[in-house]
């Protein structure tokens, strides 16, 4: 199977534009099987995507925290020309307590999903170097 060009370009983009926090995010996803954000010890907000500073109060006092518990489905749709998953590629937005809205791939059929339903995160390995999160009905 030919390599997905997305792999090459994701790796290039990470090298050129990525940041340290997003690399640590990927390591935690891949090695620890945990979806993480960063929690600010100063103002208490949780950032996602994670940062090594707080985008709410600019404090550098940030620590890693697992997120996703208590998530609910906020909106969902499909894309037919997704660059990664085969059609129909179901994606959505979940509302995660203490974090807010997160865009995410979903597992499940479109006609079985419903706004407001309980969701939980899981880790999907794309290849040996790259993983992503997706949410599934809890």
């Amino acid at each position: 199977m030919p390599a997905n060009p997305l792999d090459t370009f994701t790796n290039q983009a990470v090298k050129v534009f990525g940041n340290e926090a997003s690399r640590e995010y990927q390591r935690r996803l891949k090695d620890d099987r945990t979806l993480c954000g960063t929690h600010c010890g100063s103002c208490g907000r949780t950032a996602f995507p994670p940062r090594d500073f707080c985008p709410d109060c600019f404090s550098g006092d940030c620590s890693w925290v697992a997120i996703g518990d208590g998530a609910t489905l906020y909106a969902f749709t499909t894309q037919h020309r997704g660059l990664r998953f085969t059609a129909p590629d179901v994606i959505g937005v979940v509302n995660v307590p203490d974090v807010g809205l997160i865009v995410t791939p979903l597992s499940g059929r479109l006609d079985e999903l419903e706004i407001g339903q309980a969701m939980k995160p899981e880790v999907v390995d794309i290849n040996e170097k790259l993983s992503t999160h997706r949410f599934i009905p809890a």
Partner: peptide
């Protein structure tokens, strides 16, 4: 699209 948060969004294949 994936640049700044490559590891977060890049793997999802959202392009449009």
């Amino acid at each position: 699209a994936m640049s700044l948060y490559g590891p977060v969004h890049g793997a999802m294949g959202l392009g449009a």
